[in-house]
């Protein structure tokens, strides 16, 4: 790795124009983060009631002095597939509760499971966390479209986070990351029972004394298996055949009943 950097550095000297592209944090910080999971695909059956996923990782190029002072913090997030999410608020109109105002947030993860060496809020300043987009309170929630009055963004963001957390889709485990040797760590993230189907991302962040210095991401495919998923796939991918079969099933059931229970 060092040799590669040396080579790139040499290239940078030779071609000054290319050097600008290569101006990246790794040059500033010697620490790097490596993580690994035993699989890149998880099959989930219909009786899945939630599980823990263990991720191993190591800090490379660390400063031993800082490590003994516990200046390094690791935050591991399992981000679910992303989709636009709409938050709606009900208001009372003529005595009836009606959805009135709404706000759509662009491409937010459907699920989010966070594990860290300590409470994320104490690891770094909110501004730093917002910049990285790590932590339930700091996930990027950018509204779609024009906003007439920006003052109620906070209200919708807070409602979104609260609803996702109370629904079990967003979870956090301060203390879920543990060092098992000097620089080797183990992170446990929870897969909720309602874990969405699709490509998730395991994203590990390294902080040094409150400063974000390195990140490493791995994809993880969650595949639901079993008859329920087959039905669901058919409903979405072959909807015409699925609808026709539903009708056929109803006709057969009704007809069979009239044959079985015929009195004459």
């Amino acid at each position: 790795m060092r040799a590669l950097f040396a080579l790139l550095f040499a290239l940078g000297l030779a071609f000054p124009a290319a050097a600008q592209v290569l101006e990246d944090p790794p040059v500033e910080f010697p620490e790097k983060l490596e993580i690994g999971i035993s699989t890149d695909e998880i099959a989930i059956s219909s009786d899945f009631r939630g599980a823990d996923l263990t991720i191993f990782g190591a800090i490379e190029g660390y400063d031993p002095a800082l490590l003994t002072q516990r200046k390094y913090d690791i935050v591991v997030a399992l981000e679910g597939p992303k989709d636009n999410n709409t938050v709606r608020i009900k208001e009372r109109i003529f005595g009836i509760w009606v959805n009135r105002r709404s706000m759509t947030f662009e491409l937010v993860p459907e699920s989010y499971s966070l594990s860290s060496t300590r409470d994320v809020e104490t690891i770094a300043e909110p501004a730093m966390l917002n910049g990285v987009g790590v932590g339930i309170q700091h996930i990027r929630l950018s509204p779609v479209g024009f906003l007439g009055d920006g003052s109620n963004i906070t209200e919708f963001r807070e409602a979104f986070r609260r609803l996702k957390e109370s629904g079990g889709f967003y979870q956090r485990d301060p203390g879920g990351v543990q060092f098992i040797s000097a620089s080797l760590f183990k992170a446990t993230v929870k897969l909720p029972a309602s874990v969405p189907n699709g490509t998730h991302v395991v994203r590990a962040h390294l902080f040094r004394d409150g400063v974000f210095i390195a990140e490493k991401a791995l994809p993880l495919r969650v595949m639901k298996t079993g008859i329920e998923q087959m039905i669901s796939n058919a409903a979405y991918n072959n909807s015409l055949a699925y609808g026709a079969f539903s009708v056929f099933l109803a006709l057969i059931t009704g007809w069979l009943a009239s044959v079985v229970f015929r009195k004459d």
Binding site: G243, S246, T253
Partner: peptide, 26 residues
């Protein structure tokens, strides 16, 4: 309606419908 709901809104639950049907006709 069942077929159109299934193709536009993906909202026909065949498992739920089948349980209801069997119990209903009996």
């Amino acid at each position: 309606t069942t077929i159109v709901q299934a193709t536009t809104n993906y909202s026909v639950d065949i498992v739920l419908a089948f349980i209801l049907m069997v119990a209903g006709v009996i």
